[in-house]
Structures are given as C-alpha cells and as structure tokens.
Design a protein around this nucleic acid. Structure first.
Lengths: 193, 193, 193, 193
DNA sequence: CATGAATGAGCCTTCATTCAT
DNA sequence: GATGAATGAAGGCTCATTCAT
C-alpha cells in the first residue's frame, strides 16, 4: 500500500471537493490533480463516497490531535474555549479547502452517503463539550447549560462565521476579529456569576 | 401563468429536495409528486437550479414576514432576540422539509448554483442584526459586538441545533430546551452590564 | 408503451447479439441500429441482460406457436418428428440471427444471467418430448427410450448441425440434406420394430 | 520456459472460465488461483484469448489421446461408437470444469475469439466421423449417411445431454442411463439392416 | 398550456494489459 | 523471470432537458 500516493489522492480530492462540491466533482479530475490515472483512485478507495468519508475520517485526525495538544497547554476552561475558537478559525485560514469540506460537504454526507455516521466530527464536537463540562465542574461556567447543547451552540457560531468567510469572494471579514467577538459573547454568556 | 400549479411544484420540490438532497433529487420525482408531467416543470421554472432558488426566494417570504410581525409585537430587543430563537426552532418543527433546505441545501447553493446570491437568506440574517443593533442603540446590549458578526453567531448557533435535530432519526433533543439554552447563553453574553 | 419501438430495439438487439455476442455487444450499437437514442433502450428494458432475456421469452413465442401449428397438421408421430427437424432447420435459414442467439447465447444465459431459467427454451424442448411420447403411446416408437432424454438427443443433433451451418462462412452444407439425414438416423433409431 | 507454472495457470483458468464464463472471468482471478502474479500470466500467454485457446488446444490433447487409445482396443465400429459416447460422458463427470469449457465456451470462441479455428475440436469430431466411416466400410453401418453429418449428430446429442447435466444444480439425471439411451438410438439408427 | 417519450451528453467504474522494480 | 501497482480506454447507465403531439 503506497501511502504517499494515497495521500496525494486525498489531498487532491480535498481541493476538488472544496472547489466543485462532492456531486460536481469528477473522479477523473481528482486523479488528474493527484497526478495519477483514473483507475489508480480505485486501488486506494472503493468509490467516490469512500474518498469523501476517508477525508473526514483521516484528515480530521491531525486536526483533532493538534486541537487536543493546544488545549492541554491551557489551564482554565475559559482559556480552552478561547483556544478552540481561535484554533478553528486559524485552521480555516490555513486549510481553507479542508475547512470547506468540514463545513459544507460534511453536513450532507451523514444524510446522503449511505451509512456514514461522521464519527470524527462527533469527536471534534465532544472536545468542545468536554472543555465546557470541565469549566462547569471547577466552577468557571454556569451549571444550567447542557454541554451537549453548548457544543452545538459554540460550533454553530464558529462554523457559521467560517462558512461566511470561506464563501466570501472579496473583502473578507477579519477572522481574528470574529474570533474575539465569538469568544466575548460565548464566554460572557457562560461564565458563572 | 397558473400560480396554483407553480406552487404545487414548489411544494413538491421542497419535500423531494429535503428527502433526497438537491443533487439526488430527480425532476421527474418532483413532477410526479406535484401531479404534473415532467415537462410541465419547465414551463414554470428554467431548470432544476431555478426550482431550488425559487424555493429560497419565495418560501422565505412568509417566513420572514411572520418573523417580522412576531418581532413587531415585542417591546425590548431582548424579547426580540428570544422571539427569533423560538420562532426559528418552532418553524423547524412545523416545516421540517423547508427547514432541511434552508439548513443544508442553502449552504451549497450559493456556491454551486450559478449566480445565486441568496438574497432572502441575507434578509433573514439581517432581521437578527437589526434586533441586535436596536438593543445596542437603546442600551440593552453591549456596544463592542458588531451586529454583522453577531447575526452570524446567533444564526449559526440556532441553525446547528436545528440541523442536529433535523438529522436525528430517534430520541430527538427537546427543541424547547434548546431554545431556552441558546437564549440563556446568547442574552447573557450580549447584555450590557 | 410504444410496442413498435420496443420491437425495433429487440430486432436490432437480435442482430447485434448474433453478430457480436452478448458480451461484446454495446447497448449504443443496438440503439443506433434500432434508430433510437441510447437512453431510449432503458425506457423499454431494465438493462442489457433484460434485452437478451426478453428476446428469448418473446421471440420464442411465435417460433413455438408456428411449430405447434405445423405439428397439429401432421397425423403420425413419425411425421411430427420429421416436421420438427425440418421446421427448425428452415428457421435457421430464415432467421439466422435469431438462430444464433438460441444456439449460442442462450446456453450461457441460463448460467450467467442472474436468475434466468430459460422457460421458453424448455417449452420448445417439451414439444419434442411430447411428439416422441405420442409415438410411444400409439406404438410407433420404442418404449425403452425416455422422452426427457430423447428430446435432448434430438435437439442436440439438430442444434449442432445448425450451429455448424450458422458458423460456416463459406461452402455451407445443405440444410435440406442435413434434415434428411437427421430424420433418417433418428427415426430409424426410435422406430418400434 | 517454466512448464509447471504455465500448467498451473492453465488449470486455474479452466476452473475460473468454467465457473465464471470467459467474459466474466478476470485475469487477476486466474493468476491468484494459480498462485502467480497477474503479470506472470502474460509471460506465458499473449492475452486472455490465448489462455482459452491454449486450453482447447492443449487440454484436448490427452482427452483425444485417451479416446484414441480406448477406441483402438475395440474391435467393431459399433463398439467404438459406444465407447465414444461412454468415454465422453465419463469425462463430463470426472472433469466437469473442462467439460464446461468444451461445451459452452468453445462454441463462442470460434466466433468471437479472433482467428481461432478450433482445430482440436475438429480433431475430436473427426474421431467420431472415422469410427462411423469405418463401420460403413466394413458393412456395419448404413451407407446413406454422411460421416461429416453423422459426427455432428452424434456430438450434438452427447453434448446436449452433457450440457444439461452440467448445468443442472440438483437431481442430476444419471449419465450412465443417458449414455445407454444415446447408444441405443444412434446405433439402431445407423445399423445396416 | 400540458404531456411524457425521447434524447444524448456525461460520469463512475472495471479490467486487460503494461512496465518499473 | 516475477511482480503487482499503475494505466486509461471503454461502456453501462442516468437524468436534465427538449419537443412533437
């Protein structure tokens, strides 16, 4: 199993899916960008669906990992929430194609790609829930908000601004400012008073 | 122009797009559900894209209108924000198919459907911005958050929980509880202290 | 359901399958010969397999019917067996493409086309068994040969000569002579003495 | 030239062709069953067609040879014809895969495999013709049947029952009985009276 | 206006064959 | 010689769109 070639195909697929969308993307297009023949794609992936799912499952790993490492360096839950917000928005800027997929295609997938459950995405959300729950336990955050709901609120807010930024053609809003403002609202909204 | 037939097609399209997704939906399927011939669809809409866009542009009208009316009955900006949250989540329950589209398909559309700008969606977001700005003007809300950013935060949070609820097959979370918790976090996070 | 168009496709398919073989035949080729678009084929048949099966099931009907009518005009079982032999070989000459299919493709089909049982082919064979059994009952034919086995012997003999004739490019053997000789051997071999 | 490896590939191909049919069989499948790499196949055979042709040409040799030996031990032409029938049907039972190919795939080959003439098959048929001609010469068999036609009749009858037996999934007919009945009909049909 | 049969371009996928190692 | 990963041409099938009735 040639891991390098597999990765080249995945990287190419991220670009193409991001640019064209999953349904509009052509396998031949992905192969060409990856510098391999069309058929080679099928040596590494079962079909087009599998490519998309593999992206989610495999490309999320380092993202989740780096998020975990970054969070482990933070003391307070407050700092962790802040880190999550900034970390995510930084990723948006650095890996815009990957961001595209997470934001736009991932939503469809769990619905339209047969059997895909989006486990890595859930893992990502649970990091948010965990940071929040930690803050509840040590008294930083209010007790009346459920972590399961909060993680959705937080992710939704971050994600919406990410999508908006990603889709903006010109005069993009400053992501640093967005991060600040999300953090301001969220932290103020959940801090125990 | 037979408005009734046109509406029947639109209603059918909402159902089919919601169930199958835009790309998987077949025009014949929409026509059949609408009780018309396939070709008839093309008498009322330019193409498949146009059906989706028309849904957004036309079905959003009553949604936006009812939201505006509901808000006009509220005194404070705080109440208006609360109303927006509850109103949206109620719509999710009452019109789950329409909700599906707004949530999932709309994201793709502005990117993949040639030339679509999503004007009605922007209008919807701007209601949120306006309510927030109003609160800033009358001193209810903090000044350091930009309405343009806040509307995204608020919509993102609501929307994420909506999507989650919509896509859940069983044991769905209580939307009323979600609304409460979103309102709690958001209002606490933006209230001027 | 346009029966004429359906028939045109079937007739074209018979030609193409006969010339190229089932696996080598292209649906586009069949469509082109039928004077329709490729997609039209799929309005009348589920897939390529279905076209082949439909040929067997539907084209065999008149062949079987005309055989039955011809046999009903014959008095003795001996005459009926003779008629079967001549009738079959005449069909080979008149409908060589159809013959091709019955001979060559049909054999594969029951093995490789999922679920196809070749019912019409069995019906054809059973006409032979019936004629033979009739001869046994009225004392024309020997009793020690099983009709189920004899029908295979007779069909095999006729069919082998048919295939041979069909596949011969040049200096084809005289089918009339073949029929005479098959009849001579078979009748002599089964006559009650 | 590694004859052992070549033979392993041929044996594997017989199995795979018999099970899947020539067109459905995959070269990789044959190679895997033979315990060699896909590419190795092309060191011993020009292409997929060549494998099939080689089977016919080379696997027929011992079959033909053993048939010749068996016939040489028989005195009368009558015994020889009987031997042919029993010998063939015994082979069907002992080498069902090989039988499959001879029966089903061979028919297509001469038509669809470019340039193949089926020389070994003709040789096999000519053994039948020779045995019959011998009987004509020594007065055992009638003179009015052409050996060239009789060989087709005899082979067709045997072959049809073989195919039928091979393709039957369950409750297979007794091949010994078949052999008896073919012999009974044929010999009675050709004996000089 | 309405119909729905017909169209045919387009795409995913397969697999015989090649070739660098 | 042997390998098996890579190739890329080819084809079955789909479906948005058209148009004769």
């Amino acid at each position: 199993m040639d891991t390098i070639k597999r990765t080249k195909i995945l990287k190419a697929a991220i670009k193409v899916f991001a640019k064209e969308g999953f349904f509009n993307a052509k396998v031949e297009q992905i192969a060409k960008l990856a510098g391999v023949a069309t058929g080679t794609t099928y040596l590494y992936f079962e079909n087009k669906d599998d490519i998309l799912i593999s992206i989610f499952e495999e490309e999320m790993i380092p993202i989740i990992e780096s998020m975990r490492i970054a969070l482990s360096k933070k003391e307070t839950a407050r700092e962790k929430i802040t880190e999550i917000i900034f970390n995510h928005l930084e990723m948006i800027q650095e890996k815009p194609d990957m961001a595209q997929l997470l934001e736009i295609e991932l939503r469809q997938s769990s619905k339209f790609i047969h059997g895909y459950q989006g486990t890595k995405f859930k893992e990502y959300l649970d990091i948010m829930a965990a940071a929040f729950a930690e803050g509840q336990e040590n008294g930083e955050f209010r007790e009346d908000i459920q972590p399961t709901i909060f993680k959705q609120i937080l992710f939704g807010a971050i994600d919406q601004l990410s999508i908006n930024w990603t889709l903006s053609k010109s005069k993009k809003i400053d992501l640093k400012l967005c991060a600040d403002q999300i953090a301001a609202v969220m932290l103020d909204g959940i801090t125990n008073k």
